[in-house]
Write a protein that binds this DNA or RNA. Structure first.
Lengths: 139, 139
DNA sequence: ATAATTGCAAATTTTTTGCAGGTTC
DNA sequence: GAACCTGCAAAAAATTTGCAATTAT
């Protein structure tokens, strides 16, 4: 589905700014506010940080964006998608998605149910060093 | 081990402020900067926020404290302990620890190894509604 | 035409920094 | 006594807000 439709379905207007924010996040995968600002101002120099902040909040409320909080860094944002885990490289900051297994999903579900906890959202962040950074360090 | 020893082993002086910060976090489990400030100033009114910020950074560097980043909220901090997951109640903000299973640990290890990712730290946050808040909502 | 949205500037909140005085070892 | 720490105040960084002008529908 294109961004315009995605926005309109939530009752949000399909502005140039919003389309470009979504487009950037989609291409890069995971971006913090400053990443978005830097990227989108390339094609739309008048974009203000205030607009990014306002839209990130709005789009989260409408289930279009999801926050990915990261230890020691500013949160990144990604397009809402099916459940997955994050491989976060502590060297270069890159975030990669990795699909969840039914096994772990079931385990989380069962464990929380035993505690009478109503589970709504899972967030699995695995911190380490990505292949590229390992290779680089070895040279 | 007592806090004084814990600090000294890292080459940090066992000040009244640090002991109280650690004591509060230990008792409450998970606290953000403001929680700590509010709690510790009860027994030590002159404590400054700057001191809390400085010490949180220092104690993280020395492996005494660990950051728990939480979507939509300020990060909380906990004492470093064996690996575990977090049940985060989105109603009351409470965070409960739940021990990890070897099963999931192994799964994460295997999955990341297949990607040639050097896994250092796992962070599992499960968001939902705790039993207490469910009960309250029902009444 | 209308209501929503933008971008600016200002306000607020959060975090960091420098340094003089005080504390721990 | 020396090095380290604290607390203050000021600075810097991050985020939010109000509002007039603009834009999408």
């Amino acid at each position: 589905m294109d961004y315009a439709t995605l926005l309109k379905e939530s009752g949000l207007k399909a502005t140039f700014q919003r389309m470009n924010i979504l487009d950037s996040i989609d291409k890069q995968g995971h971006m913090c506010v400053d990443d978005i600002y830097e990227e989108v101002t390339k094609v739309h120099p008048s974009l203000s940080l205030a607009t990014i902040y306002k839209n990130i909040i709005l789009m989260q409320e409408n289930g279009i964006l999801v926050e990915v909080p990261i230890a020691g860094k500013k949160s990144k944002y990604e397009l809402a998608k099916t459940d997955h885990m994050h491989l976060i490289c502590t060297e270069c900051g890159d975030v990669e998605d990795m699909s969840c297994l039914e096994t772990t999903d079931k385990i989380f579900h069962d464990l929380t149910q035993k505690e009478h906890f109503k589970l709504n959202k899972r967030q699995v962040n695995l911190y380490g060093v990505c292949e590229a950074c390992q290779t680089q360090a070895a040279s």
